[in-house]
Design a protein around this nucleic acid. Sequence first.
DNA 1: TTGAAAGCGCTACCAT
DNA 2: ATGGTAGCGCTTTCAA
Lengths: 344, 344
Amino acid sequence: MGRVTIKDVARHAGVGLGTVSRVMNNHPRVSPETRERVLKAIRELGFRPNATARRLPRKTELRYIGVITHPFLLNYHSISERLRGVQTALSASDQGLDLALFSASSAAHFDSQLHHIVQANAVEGLLIVDFDMSDDQVQRLRQARIPFVGLNHLRGRSWPCIGTDNEYGGYVATRYLTELGHRRIAYIGDNMVDEYGFSTSQERYIGYKRALTEAQIHLNTRYVRLGDHSYRMAYDITQELLQLAQPPTAIFAMSDLQAAGIIAALRAADVHVPADVSVIGYDDTELAMALGLTTICQHLEQSGRLAAGYLLALIAGADTPPPTLPNSQLIVRQTTQPPKHRLS
Amino acid sequence: MGRVTIKDVARHAGVGLGTVSRVMNNHPRVSPETRERVLKAIRELGFRPNATARRLPRKTELRYIGVITHPFLLNYHSISERLRGVQTALSASDQGLDLALFSASSAAHFDSQLHHIVQANAVEGLLIVDFDMSDDQVQRLRQARIPFVGLNHLRGRSWPCIGTDNEYGGYVATRYLTELGHRRIAYIGDNMVDEYGFSTSQERYIGYKRALTEAQIHLNTRYVRLGDHSYRMAYDITQELLQLAQPPTAIFAMSDLQAAGIIAALRAADVHVPADVSVIGYDDTELAMALGLTTICQHLEQSGRLAAGYLLALIAGADTPPPTLPNSQLIVRQTTQPPKHRLS
DNA sequence: TTGAAAGCGCTACCAT
DNA sequence: ATGGTAGCGCTTTCAA
C-alpha cells in the first residue's frame, strides 16, 4: 500500500510541503483559504501523518517498557496486581518510560507480537507475563538487544524470571492439608496449559502430587479437575465432586476466586466449611481476606515491582543477577481444619 | 544533552556510518575485528540508538491507543475490567493498534502526561479513565487532532464519555433501601475527589441524598463516611458506625470490596446480615456473586469495549455520536431485606 | 567487507 | 503568507 504522504497532499492542494505541515500543526501564519484547500486535500486523500516521521525532527523521544500477556489473564486478579507493581517501579524510576501493554491470544499470536515488537523497535525492554519462549524467540530478543524479564517463576527457563515457585506453592498447600489429616484431597486447576503453554496450573499440580506421595496417599484422578478458571466453573465442579461416592474432605484451588465458587457450592449443598470440607485458595487477594480463606500468598505486586526494577537496571546496562522474590507463603485462615473422621 | 549518535560512534571507531548500522543489526557481512571495534566504541560512548530514527527507514509503523488513569485505580477491580474491554475491542478491530498505559498520580502529573502525549505524538487516540479535563486540556487535544473518549459517565462534560450515571446508581441503591423500609442508611464512599478531582463517589453521594430526600429522611452526616476505598478502611468504619447510639440498619458502599469489609466487620461484631443490617455494594464483581451481595452493575467491561470501539471509529474519521451504555442496574441478592423494626 | 550516499516522512528555517 | 531546502538519526542500497 503506497501510503499517502505530505508530498501527495501538497501536490494535490497545489501548495508547498511546508504549508501542509503548517496546517497540520495549527501554525498561525496560513491564510484561511490555503488552510481550507489543504484540509480538503487531506480529507480527499485520506491522509494520516506518520507519527514516527513527526517525532524525528521534533526530537521528542518516546520510550516504552512492554508488557506482554494473554488477554484472558486480564480477567485474573494476578495481572492487575503485577501491573500495579510494574507501574510503581516505572514511576519511581522517573525515566520517562511509559508502559505498553501487548496481548497475545495464542502461541502464534505471541510469536507475531514478538516479531512486531522487535521489528518496530517498540520497547526498551519487555516483561513477559506467564508465556514461555522457545530458544528461537529468546534468541531473537537477544539479537535485537531488547532486555527482557519473565514475570513468573523460573523453572527450566534459561532467562531471568521473577515469580514464586508454583510447584512449591502447590506442595505447601497440599502438605498442610495432609498434615491436618486429610487424605481425600481434590485439586481444581485450569487448563490454560494445553492451549497456551502456561504451566502454572501444571506446576502446582506437581507440587500437589509430591505432597500426596510424601503422605503416602494414592493419587485419585477423580479428584483432579481442570476448568476455565472461573467462579462458575469451580462451583459446577464442586457439585460434581459432591456426587462422588467418596467426596473429598479438602479442596485446593488454583485461585481465591475459584475457592469462593467452591465455598458457595458447598454452602448451597449444605456442606459446612471447614467442618465437612476444608478449602484452600491461591493469591491471597482481598477476596480471601473477605472470606476468611486459607490461601497461598505469592507476592504478586512485589513481583511486578521487582521485575520492572530489574528490567530497568538491565536497560541501563547492568549485568547483575535478578533479585529474589520471597517464596510463596501459606496464609492460614478459617477454611481449613482436620477432617471429621480419619479415613483412608 | 547532546546525544551520542551513530555518527559519533562511526568516527570514534574509525569506520563508516553503514558499518555501525550493520553491527547493530547483526548483519552477517562484517569482519569480526571491525565488529569488535564498533562494539567497543558503542560501549565507550554509551551509545543507545534512537528508536524513532530506526523506525523511519524501516517503515514499520507503531501505533498506540493510549489509556490514562490514576495508579491508585490499578488497585480497583474497575480498571482491569475496563482494560479488558478495551483490549477486546482493539484485538477485534485488528488494526495493529497496541495499548499504551499512562498513569498520572496527580492533577499536575496528568497535565504533564497530556503534554508529553501530545508533544510526542504518542497515540492515535486517548481513553481518559475517570480524570476530568479543563477546557484548556480539551483544547490542546483537539488542536493536536488526537481523538479522545472519557471512560466514565458524562456529567457536565463537553466531550464524549462512556460510563454509567453514578448519581443514578447511588439513587437506585438507596431508594431500594428506603423502599424496604430502612431509614438509617449509611454511605461509605472514597475521598479521591478532593485529591484528584474524581467525582465518582461524590456523584453517588448526590444520588444517595436524593433518594433520602424523596423518602423524607433527614440526612445524618454521621452516616456518611469517606475513606481510601480499601477493604480494611470499610471494616474499620463499620466498627465505628456500630458504636453510634443509633447505628445504621443499612449500609451502601462504593464498591463490592468495601461491602465485603463491611460484612466482615458486622459478622465479627455478631451483627447479622441482612437480618440486622442490610448491605449494598457496587460493581457486580465476582466477589459480589461469591458473597451473595446485593450490588449495582455498571457494565464495566462493556464500557471499555464501547469506548475503545468508539475511539477507533473517531480515529477512522467517523463523526457519529457516542454509543450508549445500558444504565446501572440493581442486582438484588441476599444481603438486603427490610429492617427488623420500623424506626424513624 | 566496507564507505558513501540516497532516502524514510516530516519539521522548521530561510528566503521571498 | 508561502515555497524551497536542510536536516532529524538511522537503514540500505550501490559501488568499490
